[in-house]
């Protein structure tokens, strides 16, 4: 068999496809719950995106390596063990090195285990492919998830708090309380608006590329 290079065109496609035309959030509509919960501010959104990327990529690689040794009937339980191990590791690392963000994310780090993207990619990809492409696929899907998360969080933090990454972007003299005319939008901080923003992103994507629309 011909040896394939690590970054062949096929493997690169695994990395870039989930960013756009097969994005896990906007096209497959997976992992939406956490997209609503952690996107009030940019910083937790980015940390969440990195955590999910790590978990998806590594669990994909491990499951792919184990795929021929696991009996098919108990594969879900094995997947759960692997994923929960990784989630606990990520949680411990966050608590050690980024305690504030870890507190903001609270339960949602632990809930990565229930993020449909993780199980979805293992079932749909890792169980039928070699470890390296599975790893790349995990990175790609994690980044695709992160892209949407960051886009939603950008809008929500900017309009909801007037800041980006905690730094004030809209000058405080603009606010009505200080004699200006502007006011932060309270609705955008509430979960429904995250859902609406996500809907708008999907709307834009589908109107631009017809191949994501079911006939």
């Amino acid at each position: 068999m011909e040896k394939e290079s690590l970054f062949s065109a096929k493997n690169l496609k695994l990395l870039t496809d989930p960013l756009g035309r097969s994005n896990p959030v906007t096209v497959l509509v997976l992992g939406v719950c956490s997209a609503l919960a952690v996107t009030v501010k940019l910083e937790p959104a980015v940390v969440m995106a990195i955590s999910v990327t790590v978990v998806v990529a590594v669990s994909n690689a491990i499951m792919s390596a184990l795929r021929s040794t696991i009996p098919n009937r108990i594969r879900i339980i094995v997947q759960l063990v692997v994923v929960s191990l990784l989630v606990i590791l990520v949680d411990q690392v966050l608590r050690a090195f980024a305690y504030d963000v870890s507190k903001q994310l609270s339960v949602f780090v632990g809930l990565i285990i229930t993020n449909c993207i993780v199980m979805g990619r293992i079932e749909a990809f890792a169980l039928g492919n070699k470890p390296w492409p599975s790893f790349i696929d995990g990175i790609g899907n994690g980044l695709g998830y992160g892209l949407v998360l960051v886009a939603v969080a950008f809008v929500r933090e900017l309009l909801g708090s007037g800041t980006l990454w905690g730094y004030r972007v809209i000058p405080s003299s603009f606010y009505i309380a200080n004699g200006g005319v502007y006011e932060n939008n309270g609705l955008i901080i509430l979960p429904p608006m995250a859902l609406i923003l996500l809907g708008i992103i999907i709307w834009i994507q589908r109107s631009r590329s017809k191949n994501t629309v079911k006939s």
Binding site: E183, N185, G186, L187, I188, L190
Partner: peptide, 10 residues
Amino acid sequence: AFVFFSYPSH
């Protein structure tokens, strides 16, 4: 409702 939840003080 939009004004009510976005700008409650108004």
